[in-house]
Simulated scan of single mutants.
Amino acid sequence: MRRLTVIYWICTGLTALLMGMGSIPNILSSADSIALFQQIGYPTYLLPFLGVAKLLGVIAIIVPGFPRIKEWAYAGLTFDLAGATYSFLAIGAPVAVIASMIPGFLVIAGSYVTYHKRRKAKISLSLEV
């Protein structure tokens, strides 16, 4: 159980770092974020919305409890990353840019899978007592 917890917190911490660091420039509508959105062809008014949504998702996966909210948060973070990947594919971004999304998917999946394994293990332990 200890090993599983360590893996969970490493993956969750990396997910929080990745998505949290990406949310700040979006919330602030930084010049780089605006330029990226214009390159992709998205309206810049979406920036703060996506930034706040990502930040709320990060908070939801870090705060203990609230399993249903965590499910939605993991889905939202995955959809955000999938949408970014598809957007880069649609504009013909270099393969390196698209490949750079893979670690994001891996840490989100690692966090999600280990979250459920830990939860199942805790339920099993409580039933044994």
Score class of each variant (00 low, 15 high):
residue 116 H to Y: 15
residue 109 A to W: 11
residue 88 F to I: 00
residue 90 A to Q: 14
residue 84 A to T: 08
residue 78 T to A: 13
residue 112 Y to D: 09
residue 106 L to E: 11
residue 89 L to C: 10
residue 76 G to T: 03
residue 84 A to F: 07
residue 101 M to G: 11
residue 87 S to L: 02
residue 78 T to K: 05
residue 106 L to Y: 09
residue 92 G to I: 03
residue 75 A to S: 12
residue 107 V to F: 13
residue 119 R to F: 08
residue 114 T to V: 04
residue 81 L to G: 03
residue 93 A to G: 11
residue 94 P to W: 11
residue 121 A to S: 13
residue 113 V to S: 04
residue 89 L to T: 08
residue 121 A to L: 12
residue 87 S to T: 12
residue 119 R to Y: 09
residue 92 G to R: 04
residue 83 G to F: 10
residue 87 S to R: 01
residue 100 S to Q: 07
residue 78 T to G: 13
residue 119 R to K: 14
residue 91 I to T: 12
residue 106 L to N: 09
residue 114 T to I: 05
residue 115 Y to H: 15
residue 84 A to V: 08
residue 80 D to V: 00
residue 95 V to T: 14
residue 123 I to K: 15
residue 109 A to H: 08
residue 121 A to P: 03
residue 84 A to W: 09
residue 103 P to V: 07
residue 118 R to L: 15
residue 109 A to C: 06
residue 93 A to M: 05
residue 82 A to P: 00
residue 87 S to I: 01
residue 113 V to H: 01
residue 79 F to P: 04
residue 91 I to R: 12
residue 108 I to M: 08
residue 101 M to T: 13
residue 124 S to T: 09
residue 99 A to C: 03
residue 115 Y to P: 04
residue 110 G to N: 06
residue 118 R to W: 05
residue 86 Y to M: 10
residue 112 Y to I: 01
residue 104 G to W: 01
residue 126 S to M: 13
residue 89 L to D: 05
residue 124 S to R: 13
residue 79 F to K: 05
residue 88 F to C: 00
residue 115 Y to M: 09
residue 76 G to E: 04
residue 102 I to N: 13
residue 116 H to M: 08
residue 113 V to D: 02
residue 80 D to L: 02
residue 86 Y to N: 07
residue 98 I to K: 02
residue 84 A to E: 11
residue 123 I to C: 03
residue 106 L to W: 05
residue 107 V to N: 00
residue 91 I to G: 09
residue 93 A to L: 06
residue 115 Y to Q: 13
